[in-house]
Amino acid sequence: MSAKSTGVDIKLMGGLFLIVGAVDLVIIVMFPSYALKLFGTIVTGPLSFPAKLHSPAVHLLIGYGFLWLRPWAWGLSLAYAGFGLASEALNQLAFGFHPVRSGFMVTTALFIIYLYSRRRLFTDQPGMPTTGPSVSEGSH
């Protein structure tokens, strides 16, 4: 079987999302005073710790969904990628250009394009056949 039909590429990405989520959680626990930059603001104070936990939680959910090719994982990953792009664009406007974060934005945009091209892996229904008469031709 090819990666195209089984989604091995997406499942591997799922494994990577699980690893990133776990590492992110460890970093947040080890450095609880880290001030998160989100949508052009710096989140500090007692609510900053739970606010930072959104990242590992979503990464772990996406990882699980990608491993099992769950339809909701496709939408969640696209929404979270859009969230990340919007937040980082505002951060760059508020705090200035940063080359590493700009690289994050470029790779996230490429991820969105790739994921969109693999969207049929996440459907509950098998793909429709591409041969045969079209619906508009009708039956005679």
Results as ranks from 00 to 15, higher is better:
Arg120Thr: 09
Leu90Tyr: 07
Gly21Met: 06
His59Ser: 03
Ala35Gly: 11
Ser87Tyr: 09
Asp24Gly: 15
Met1Leu: 09
Pro50Ile: 07
Gly7Tyr: 01
Gly127Arg: 10
Phe97His: 13
Gly96Tyr: 08
Lys11His: 03
Arg119Gln: 11
Thr107Asp: 03
Leu93Pro: 02
Leu76Ala: 03
His140Thr: 07
Ser55Gly: 12
Gly84Met: 12
Ser87Asn: 08
Trp74Phe: 15
His98Tyr: 09
Val29His: 06
Trp72Asp: 09
Gly40Leu: 10
His54Ala: 15
Ala35Arg: 13
Asp24Pro: 01
Phe39Ala: 12
Leu60Met: 14
Leu69Cys: 04
Gly84Glu: 04
Ile28Ala: 11
Gly21Ala: 09
Met13Gln: 02
Gln125Ala: 11
Ser77Gly: 10
Ser33Leu: 07
Trp68Glu: 12
Gln92Thr: 13
Thr131Leu: 10
Asp9Glu: 07
Thr130Pro: 02
Gly75Ala: 12
Gly65Met: 01
Gly82Ile: 05
Leu12Gln: 05
Ile42Tyr: 08
Gly40Cys: 13
Arg118Asp: 01
Gly103Ile: 05
Leu90Trp: 08
Val100Arg: 06
Glu137Thr: 14
Pro133Asn: 09
Pro71Tyr: 10
Trp72Glu: 15
Gln92Pro: 03
Leu85Cys: 10
Gly103Asn: 11
Tyr64Cys: 04
Ser2Val: 03
Val106His: 11
His98Lys: 07
Ala73His: 03
Tyr114Glu: 10
His98Gly: 09
Arg70Lys: 15
Val100Gly: 09
Phe39Arg: 10
Gly96Gln: 08
Ile10Phe: 00
Val135Leu: 13
His98Trp: 08
Asn91Phe: 07
Ile19Phe: 13
His54Leu: 15
Ala22Pro: 04
Phe122Gly: 00
Gly21Lys: 02
Phe49Tyr: 15
Asn91Leu: 10
Ile10Asn: 00
Ala35Pro: 06
Pro50Trp: 04
Leu38Phe: 15
His54Asn: 13
Ile42His: 08
Leu47Met: 14
Leu25Ser: 13
Gln92Ser: 14
Phe39Thr: 05
Trp72Met: 13
Leu36Thr: 04
His98Asp: 15
Arg120Asp: 14
Val23Asn: 03
Thr6Trp: 03
Val43Pro: 02
Val23His: 05
